[in-house]
């Protein structure tokens, strides 16, 4: 077998699931795998589906707010870890990788457990959008911090020294030199955090309450009941959004390099 043939098979393997979801979203049959004609009615049905609409709203609300918090905290963390010393820093540097590698489910049940313990004292931790945001920020922070820190490592320290030498105080140096130069890293970290939040199912599932259903949770519960064509339509839209997002980011990165 030639390399090209193997590669073609692997691409087919990677895209078969995406293709089947897209194809079946246009299948007229309500149940089963048989093909009974082309239709776009499921997309119309989706528009009528208030559950799907509110899940979309929740998902975006969750992703935007958690990303905003995580990007600010993660950037500060990445900057501080790169620039300053404090006792126990090496240990904390290790701990920062825990959310990156921890199995989703472990983090999810730890949160669930923690919230249920807290609820004995404080009603704020009633499962819902707030608890989901708190959980999402927790796994997003390290990703932002790590991306920002790697951008800082590549930065010539003389640039900040030059700013100080020219009369900029610490804040001015950060605002006018460091921030513009690490902005691509912050944007990249923020986009990573945003995508992680959009994609997350497990942590959301365990920390969500009634009325705080997100798209992944909606898809999961639908799949558990049996896949329906309108879920395929919803998934198709998500897949297309992911493709568009990835392509746009790739193009942006390319134009930046030239």
């Amino acid at each position: 077998m030639s390399l090209n043939f193997i590669a073609a098979l692997l691409y087919l393997f990677l895209y078969a699931p995406l293709a089947v979801v897209i194809v079946y979203s246009f299948n007229a049959a309500r149940f089963g795998a048989g093909w009974s004609g082309f239709t776009t009615k499921w997309y119309g049905a989706l528009w009528e589906n208030s559950l799907a609409l509110s899940a979309t709203k929740n998902t975006l609300l969750l992703a935007v707010s958690s990303t905003a918090i995580a990007t600010v905290l993660g950037t500060m963390l990445g900057y501080g870890m790169n620039r300053f010393r404090f006792p126990g820093k090496a240990l904390f540097g290790w701990f920062l990788y825990v959310p990156v590698f921890i199995p989703d489910i472990v983090m999810a049940v730890a949160m669930l457990l923690f919230y249920s313990l807290l609820r004995k004292w404080c009603s704020l931790f009633e499962l819902g959008l707030t608890t989901m945001i708190l959980a999402h920020v927790t796994f997003q922070i390290p990703f932002v911090a790590i991306v920002v820190r790697s951008r800082l490592v590549g930065l010539d320290p003389a640039l900040e020294e030059a700013a100080g030498d020219l009369g900029a105080n610490e804040w001015q140096t950060f605002r006018h030199v460091t921030l513009p130069l690490i902005l691509p890293g912050i944007v990249a970290g923020g986009m990573l955090a945003f995508t992680l939040s959009l994609d997350d199912f497990v942590v959301s599932f365990f920390t969500s309450g009634p009325g705080a259903t997100t798209l992944p949770i909606l898809i999961y519960s639908s799949v558990k009941r049996g896949i329906t064509p309108d879920i395929n339509a919803l998934s198709t839209l998500i897949v297309l959004a992911s493709i568009a997002g990835t392509v746009v980011v790739t193009l942006l990165q390319r134009t930046k390099k030239v």
Partner: peptide
């Protein structure tokens, strides 16, 4: 004021 070895001009 300093003239740095690498010049350290602000690239942005």
């Amino acid at each position: 004021n300093t003239v740095f070895q690498s010049y350290a001009l602000f690239p942005h």
